[in-house]
Amino acid sequence: MTRVKKYLSLVRGSILEGLVFRTSLIVSIIGNLLYLIIIYFLWKAIFDSSPTDVVNGMTFYDTMIYLVLASAMFQFMDTFVVWAIGRDYQSGQIVEYLVKPMDYQAYIFFAGIGNSIVAFFITFLPTFIIIYFVTHGSIVLGMNLVFFAISLICSIVVNFCVDFFVGTICLYTQSIWGVNIMKEIVVGLLSGATVPLAFFPEKFRMVVDFLPFQAIYHSPLRILTDQKMTGADYADVLGMQLLWIVVTLLISKLFWKKSVRKMMVNGG
């Protein structure tokens, strides 16, 4: 019971923290709207130039939903894990966390999740509703929403494990910015968040399918936009995500354990 309690208090703390920065939440809503406008006109121009309405199985509205929600997902899932680990390490504060009776990885996860919850309600949900109306109700509101929610939770965990792995790299390099930007680019491109995976050439696609990144953005967004999915398809997508959770969690834990032993902290 105390185990759960200590994590719950972390979550509560980070929710309150998230609510303090209201300016940034309002600004991020404006940013999302602007992104929506740009994506709308860019992809409208792209689809208008195409002889067919459906390209690689995706309509203009599907693409809109996919890309705008990918951006909104990025905002609520990005809890600056790489920065948190990098800074804890560089300042030496990491030592304090290591002696506490709490797993560092779990600590970082729960200390960020509150922010995600706040951002989910304040930026993701409004964006979802806006995109629903902009695309004239192209999102099917049925059982797929339940699968979408489950998939989204899986996404958060896979994304966190990838972030934690990359954050651990900061124990070896003196760079946070550089490591973090590389991660953002690689994840953004290979997860479909920049260009939907359906538009990738086949060879590219085969490689991407074997990487964990598509389990972050592509999986939930496919569930939302692909209306031809059967029960078996859902099971397939969610099963793959679960597999990636296990794999990324294991790898990031092992990497952390190995790195912490070698870590050297100056002062602090």
Partner: peptide
């Protein structure tokens, strides 16, 4: 004096451009 940071950041910047 932070050479690794400099090199990694430069590569990171290049990543964004290539993307």
């Amino acid at each position: 004096s932070y050479r690794a940071d400099f090199i990694i950041s430069t590569i990171g910047m290049l990543f964004t451009n290539v993307a």
